[in-house]
Design a protein around this nucleic acid. Structure first.
Length: 352
DNA sequence: GATGCGTGGAG
DNA sequence: TCTCCAAGCAT
């Protein structure tokens, strides 16, 4: 079936309906010769991995404010970057962000590679992100295949093979539409369409610029597509967080190991979050258990986190973590589950 | 190919 | 309240 008009229809639609984003150069400005900042594009694409535009905006603004160039970011302290990323989730992205920035400075003279192959070799840059940066920042005709494009292609071609098995065929469809005249605008256009028109639950087919090309719209199957293999139910795990405050107001915190859940992030000492009984607290103290646990859902399990608090003497020696002075402690530097525990304990521990 | 890895918003 | 899910990557 010929769908040669899809590309031009999407570009025409994008010229009128492109959404404003801090890292995006709008089509009219691109025509006037304005080029995207590859650093800003890379930062946005990493932040947007499995994350909504609404959630990314403020973080992107914060990062470019503190670290205006990739060289600035490469020179940053690890702890400062992790603290700035706190709350955005998927913290391996922040660790790889730093690795990538340092590789760009050390191995590429501070300039991002301009090819798909050069980009995908960098930490935290996979097939999607390499194609996105190559097309958006450098107008290389690379094909982006993210969740939006998968949905758009599955519907355009009424493809019923479930994901992720359908990825190769959806990629072949996407490649057929990739623009060679305006690669960056096209990549953003097809993703904008998926985000605003061809949405998962209530697609606005009535105003869709490629409705005449859409096999699912013809068949009436758009709400069933794309099909996905069913997910496993999430188990519930239990644990305990220990929030201790010293006589001078300092808080007992520890940096978590780089690997695993919340890797590299600052947090309260906790038990592990399995089914095993609680090991010993991080030090001898009189621990009080709060009435309400912190509840939090991660990607693959629910957590019910009991919170224990203690006020401890100045000479207390912890066997885990370190006391952070009150003046240096900012709850916003903690991942969300740790902020929840803090909020529950704050009233109890406000007075030293 | 399957699994681990956050979070907040929408329905 | 609960499920789904959003511009994925590393292993």
């Amino acid at each position: 079936m010929g769908k040669t008009s899809v590309t031009s229809a999407l570009l025409d639609w994008y010229d009128v309906h492109a959404r404003e984003m801090p890292w995006r150069v709008m089509p009219a400005d691109k025509r006037a010769g304005v080029r995207p900042d590859p650093y800003a594009v890379w930062l946005s694409e990493v932040m947007l991995q499995q994350t909504t535009v609404a959630a990314v905006r403020d973080y992107h603004r914060k990062f470019t404010g503190i670290w205006p160039t990739v060289a600035d970011l490469a020179a940053a302290e690890d702890a400062d970057v992790m603290a700035a990323w706190a709350g955005l989730g998927y913290y391996a992205r922040a660790r790889n962000l730093l690795k990538c920035a340092r590789a760009v400075v050390a191995d590429h003279g501070g300039a991002f590679p301009q090819t798909y192959e050069g980009l995908i070799a960098l930490p935290g840059i996979g097939p999607y992100t390499a194609a996105a940066i190559a097309s958006i920042a450098f107008d290389v005709p690379a094909t982006v295949l993210d969740g939006n494009v998968e949905r758009v292609m599955a519907r355009l071609y009424d493809e019923h093979t479930p994901l992720p098995a359908a990825k190769p065929v959806l990629m072949s469809y996407a490649e057929q539409h990739t623009s060679h005249s305006r690669p960056g605008d096209y990549a953003q256009a097809v993703m904008d369409l998926g985000a605003t028109i061809c949405t998962p639950k209530s697609p606005a087919c009535g105003i869709c610029p490629v409705r005449p090309n859409c096999d699912a719209q013809t068949a009436g199957t758009q709400l069933e597509l794309p099909r996905k293999t069913p997910k496993k139910p999430k188990p519930t795990r239990y644990g305990t967080a220990y929030i201790a405050r010293r006589a001078d107001g300092a808080w007992l915190l520890e940096t978590r190991p780089d690997k695993g859940l919340l890797g590299g992030m600052l947090g309260w000492p906790t038990t592990d979050w399995s089914d095993t009984p609680d090991p010993a607290p991080p030090m001898d103290a009189t621990w009080d258990t709060l009435n309400e646990p912190a509840r939090h859902t991660f990607t693959h399990f629910h957590l019910i986190l009991s919170v224990q608090t203690a006020k401890v003497p100045q000479n207390t020696a912890p066997n885990r973590g370190a006391f952070i002075p009150e003046a240096d402690f900012t709850p916003s530097a903690l991942p969300t589950v740790m902020q929840k525990a803090y909020n529950l304990a704050a009233a109890t521990l406000r007075q030293v």
